[in-house]
Computed example of a mutant assay.
Amino acid sequence: MTTPLLRRISIQHRLFLLIGLVSVALIIPLILALNDYQQSLMTNKQNKTQHLVQTAYTLVEHYHQQYIKGEISLEQAKTAAASAVQSLRYDANDYFWINDLTPTMVMHPMKPALNGQDLSQIADPNGKKLFVDMVTLAKQQQSGLVHYMWPKPGSESPVEKVSYIKLFKPWGWVIGSGVYVMM
């Protein structure tokens, strides 16, 4: 008669095996829960960014309405709108930018050297022409998310970023803001 496999393993090894199985049984749901939590946080950040871009959009719309009513010129409306959006901040260092559909930077508060510059050749380290992609998305869907690499304010090293953009059709402006992806 043969002895069962577990009977041939010492008690000490059986305990280690039991501890290992219980540990794996506890760690797997924990890892899944942490992954789900991380995804939920990122979704919440993206939704928040979308709502904040809508706020900046509404601000630009306000100046457009002043122009429509004849209260200010088109140039005054655009200058005032860009200036107002430039000063907006949230969560300490997060900001908004505006580019047009050519794509040329209308206003970037953290990199003012980009203002007035052609953005069509700017690419992230992976070769993605992010502003061209933003313009394409704006023309096709009016708004949406764009994933790319971009340096955080005060840094030169690009990190993963997800931005929400929205087209302000009357002026051909793409208003955007983004969140950095922390992994």
Rank of each mutant, 00 (worst) to 15 (best):
T2P: 14
P4R: 08
P4Y: 02
L6Q: 10
L6R: 10
R8V: 12
I9M: 12
H13L: 15
G20P: 05
L21P: 05
V22Q: 11
A25F: 04
I27R: 11
I28R: 12
L30Q: 11
L30E: 13
L30R: 03
A33H: 08
Q38V: 09
Q39L: 12
L41W: 10
L41T: 10
M42C: 04
N44H: 13
N44Q: 13
N44V: 09
Q46K: 11
Q46P: 03
T49Y: 00
Q54H: 13
Q54P: 01
T55G: 04
T55A: 10
T55Y: 12
Y57E: 10
T58Q: 12
V60W: 04
Y63M: 01
Y63V: 03
H64F: 10
H64G: 07
Q66P: 05
Q66E: 15
Y67V: 02
I68N: 13
E71G: 03
E71A: 05
I72L: 14
A77I: 04
K78H: 12
T79K: 02
A82S: 15
A82C: 08
D91Y: 13
D91Q: 15
Y95H: 13
F96Y: 08
F96H: 01
P103Q: 00
P103E: 01
T104M: 06
T104G: 02
M105V: 05
M107T: 06
M110V: 09
P112V: 08
G116Q: 07
D118I: 02
D118T: 03
S120F: 05
Q121V: 07
I122G: 00
D124G: 01
P125Y: 07
L130F: 08
L130S: 02
M134E: 07
A138T: 05
Q142M: 13
G144I: 08
G144A: 14
Y148F: 15
W150Q: 01
P151F: 03
S155M: 10
P158Q: 06
V159G: 08
V162M: 01
V162A: 01
S163V: 04
Y164V: 01
I165G: 00
I165A: 03
K166G: 03
L167N: 00
F168K: 10
K169P: 10
G172M: 12
G172V: 09
W173N: 03
I175A: 02
S177N: 09
V179M: 06
V181N: 07
V181Y: 09
M183F: 10
